[in-house]
């Protein structure tokens, strides 16, 4: 398994290189000149050209990319073209917020959705199943920014129970985590129900019941365990989604996370930030996927990694 893990980690290198090269390529096609955006409104053509040269934008895209990678290999992610702040330092400041949000929402989503999905599978076509299914559809359909605003209005503006914005105390995480994990609880509950339902009708579950195993053992040991692989995959995807895709929640709750950092940078073509963020997000997504793959063999010993 160690060999497999090392192989996967090594595979991350070309993956990250490919992704960052793709980002450079895409950004080079986008209209608009970062130097012109950066320069004061009154800047002359000569001043803008000088700025372009100082930013290295006068060089071909591939040369710019290779220079960037060379700097990264020396541990330098560069500085933001606009704020002049170190991208690495800024990522170090911001990653904990995004990671905490991702870990907490994924954990809570797992704790709620797996038992709930299993319950609705076992009790399918009962009132409990209908109620949970309705709630799942309701929260799946609800845009998370709308849920976030509703939470803010009710728990900050009307009652003053929770802080409306920012980070710092555990109370600050309550609303953002609910807003992030509501839809993933809904979707994971539905997928858990589907997978457990699929397994629960299998011959080996029927055999377990015929052998006289009690219902809890049948569900937990035979049905759920065999249904867990796709469920865990879904949760891993949710976590990866939070890393780069929680911009709305970060914006609504003024969380200084990586998603907001990346999205703001895209708006102004701040390449050092864009590439730095994408690189870090790719690495984390790669690691999470690796951990999930390794978890497969723990859940199902038949899965072997050679």
């Amino acid at each position: 398994m160690l060999k497999y893990a090392l192989k996967r980690i090594l595979l991350l290198i070309p993956t990250v290189l490919g992704i960052t090269l793709f980002i450079y390529f895409i950004m080079s096609l986008v209209p608009g000149d970062p130097a012109a955006m950066l320069a004061p409104q009154e800047a002359t053509a000569e001043e803008i050209e000088a700025l372009r040269v100082s930013m290295g934008l006068d060089k071909p895209m591939l040369i710019q990319y290779l220079r960037y990678i060379w700097n990264v290999l020396q541990g330098d992610l560069g500085v933001s073209w606009f704020t002049k702040k170190s991208v690495a330092a800024e990522l170090v400041n911001r990653l904990p917020y995004t990671l905490t949000l991702g870990v907490m929402s994924t954990l809570i989503a797992s704790i709620i959705s797996i038992p709930l999905g299993t319950l609705t599978a076992v009790k399918h076509n009962t009132l409990a199943d209908y109620v949970v299914t309705f709630l799942c559809l309701f929260f799946s359909a609800m845009p998370n920014f709308w849920l976030a605003i509703l939470l803010q209005i009710n728990f900050s503006l009307n009652t003053g129970w929770l802080p409306a914005f920012g980070m710092g105390t555990p109370a600050h995480y309550v609303m953002p985590v609910i807003a992030v994990c509501a839809s993933s609880i809904a979707s994971n509950t539905r997928s858990t129900r589907t997978w457990v339902l699929d397994v629960i009708r299998s011959d080996y579950v029927r055999t377990a019941r015929a052998k006289g195993a009690n219902e809890v053992t049948v569900v937990m040991k035979h049905a759920l365990r065999n249904a867990l692989l796709p469920i865990i995959t879904g949760l891993g995807s949710s976590f990866a989604g939070v890393l780069g895709g929680s911009v709305v929640i970060e914006t609504v709750f003024a969380i200084p996370g990586v998603s907001t950092y990346l999205t703001t940078a895209v708006g102004v073509r701040d390449m050092p930030i864009i590439t730095g963020c994408i690189m870090v997000i790719s690495i984390f997504v790669g690691i999470v996927n690796l951990l999930i793959d390794l978890l497969y063999s723990v859940i199902d010993p038949r899965v072997k990694y050679e």
Binding site: Q152, I153, L157, T251, A254
Partner: peptide, 19 residues
């Protein structure tokens, strides 16, 4: 000095007393 880009959050922050 708090940086909040979202207009709804800006207003909720002041109206709730958080800012």
């Amino acid at each position: 000095l708090n940086i909040i880009s979202n207009i709804n959050t800006q207003f909720i922050a002041v109206e709730s007393g958080d800012a």
